[in-house]
Simulated assay, not measured.
Amino acid sequence: MVFAHDTERSLVDAAKLINTAESEVDQLNTLADLDEFVKANEYSGSRSHTMGELRAVRHLRPRLRAVWTAEEDEAVRLVNNILRNGRALPQLVQHDGWDYHLHATTPDAPLDIRMAVDAAMALVDVIREKELVRLRVCAAEDCNAVLVDLSRNRSKRFCDTGNCANRTHVAAYRARKATA
């Protein structure tokens, strides 16, 4: 394991959130889309189920994406800003079958704030461990999705949103065959 289980989970969830904006059709267009995303990624706490909540979550995506592509000092500034705006107060909690892990907001904080602060807390660990290289953009030429490389040897290059690795490898194979 590279990071604590809650850190890994928050990083993967943040990447999934960012990637909802990376396909041809935005995957968070409706409240039902948001409901499905929240349920699939097991976000806890209160919800307003309003268009304002949906807009706030959608607005979070580019803020998190900026950290994925930032140099260390800029990443620190962005993460600190998220933590400050969320009035983060880290606490150990246990809920929904999860063992003790960190939450830095109250369960009744707005969904976008909880999502942002959870991601920021995970990004704190990434920055402290000097592992920003694990936050990447997919290596496929036609993909802008982000990924978290949790492999032991830091070798993950392609996202999980489609068949990017397979498409790239097939294209390279065909190019080699064409020149042979």
Rank of each mutant, 00 (worst) to 15 (best):
Q27M: 13
Q27P: 00
L28K: 02
N29V: 11
L31Q: 08
A32T: 11
A32D: 14
D33M: 08
L34K: 03
L34V: 04
K39W: 12
A40T: 13
N41I: 08
E42S: 13
Y43F: 15
S44F: 15
S48V: 09
H49F: 11
T50C: 06
E53L: 07
E53A: 07
L54T: 03
R58D: 07
H59W: 10
H59Y: 12
L60M: 06
L60T: 02
P62A: 09
P62I: 07
L64T: 06
L64Y: 00
R65M: 06
R65E: 09
A66N: 07
A66K: 10
A66M: 08
A66S: 12
E72P: 10
D73M: 13
E74T: 11
E74R: 14
A75Y: 01
R77C: 08
L78M: 07
N80H: 07
I82Q: 04
R84E: 10
N85R: 14
R87H: 11
R87G: 10
L89I: 10
Q91W: 09
Q91T: 12
Q91I: 11
V93G: 06
D96C: 09
W98Q: 14
H101E: 09
H101K: 04
L102V: 13
T106M: 15
T106H: 14
T106A: 14
P107T: 06
P107N: 07
P107E: 07
P107S: 07
M115F: 08
A116M: 01
V117D: 02
D118V: 01
D118I: 01
A119C: 06
A119P: 00
L123Y: 05
V126Y: 06
I127W: 00
E131P: 00
L132T: 06
L132W: 00
V133R: 12
R134F: 03
L135S: 03
L135W: 05
L135A: 06
R136A: 06
C138H: 02
A139F: 09
A139W: 05
A139G: 11
E141N: 15
E141S: 15
N144V: 13
V146P: 03
V148H: 03
D149N: 02
L150Y: 01
S151M: 04
S151A: 08
R152M: 11
R152I: 10
R152C: 04
N153T: 14
N153A: 15
R154C: 09
K156C: 05
K156E: 06
R157N: 08
C159E: 02
